[in-house]
């Protein structure tokens, strides 16, 4: 292993470095569940390894993690279980990977969802980000591969990005452990409710579809008043997703 480069934040006031313990695969008695989602080839597994201290193989291949990996860390005496979801381009199709990722965010109800995005290809990555934000409102965007972005002369205004998306944005270079402490701090703040997200909802939907979605959303909310993602379920119903229809019928959303 290469020597760990100390990130600026590891010594700063609000990050409690002593409070961090990487737990590897020991995930018993956790307080919070954290899901790790993202496009293939964004260094998702590297982020996973940086958070847990594990050494999962991370190939330069789109779609490497197919089986779900789990790991854990402890921060400020709270234990977090981290679940590495398969890398997908979207959650709208029906491939095995996408269903696994979607089901976990939807039914596994993670306390926080970390969305890893490649800073060099933000537009493409936002496709998945925006979909996840329709499902869950407890999310943080981990803007990874910042080192490459810097080499490519790409600058991202993180504050206005966070404002547009309605969730915290943390720039990282997980390969060099940069930004990981900030990420952990943000995860803990979302988990504990210190940060409340107001996620972006998909606009620009054609009028006739938006009308159908609104009608359906109203009906769903009437039946399940506490549901956070009625609009997304409406999308799925309009798509005719048999999986979601069955879940509705069997009452898995309650």
């Amino acid at each position: 292993m290469e020597t760990k480069i100390k990130s600026a934040c590891e010594t700063c006031a609000y990050f409690n470095a002593e409070g961090l313990k990487k737990l590897g695969i020991n995930t018993e008695n956790f307080d919070f569940v954290v899901a790790l989602a993202g496009n293939p080839n964004t260094g998702k597994s590297t982020v996973f390894n940086a958070l847990t201290g594990l050494r999962q193989h991370t190939g330069n291949w789109p779609g490497k993690t197919v089986t779900r990996a789990e790991g854990g860390f402890e921060y400020n005496t709270q234990k977090y279980k981290l679940v590495d979801l398969p890398g997908t381009y979207s959650l709208l199709s029906t491939s095995e990977d996408e269903e696994a990722a979607r089901d976990f965010i939807l039914f596994g109800k993670p306390n926080v969802t970390v969305i890893v995005a490649d800073a060099n290809r933000l537009e493409r990555n936002l496709n998945l980000v925006l979909q996840i934000l329709e499902i869950t409102d407890k999310a943080v965007l981990c803007l990874n591969l910042m080192d490459e972005a810097k080499r490519n002369n790409i600058t991202i205004d993180e504050r206005s990005l966070a404002r547009d998306l309605g969730i915290p944005v943390v720039p990282t270079s997980a390969r060099y452990n940069k930004g990981i402490p900030e990420l952990i701090q943000t995860i803990s703040e979302i988990a504990n409710g210190t940060i409340v997200c107001k996620p972006h909802r998909i606009k620009n939907v054609p009028e006739n579809i938006e009308k159908a979605v609104k009608t359906l959303t109203a009906k769903i909310e009437k039946e399940f008043p506490s549901i956070p993602n009625s609009r997304w379920i409406a999308f799925r119903l309009l798509e005719g997703d048999a999986h979601i229809i069955n879940a509705l019928k069997s009452g898995e959303f309650v």
């Binding site: 933000l122 537009e123 002369n153 998306l165 998909i202 579809i209």
Partner: peptide, 26 residues
Amino acid sequence: NLTESIYADAANIVKGTVRTKDSEKH
């Protein structure tokens, strides 16, 4: 339509937040 809407949103957001300088050495 849905996918197009999402990508349109994404393009809008990126327009306001990402800047690329033209020297693309890498």
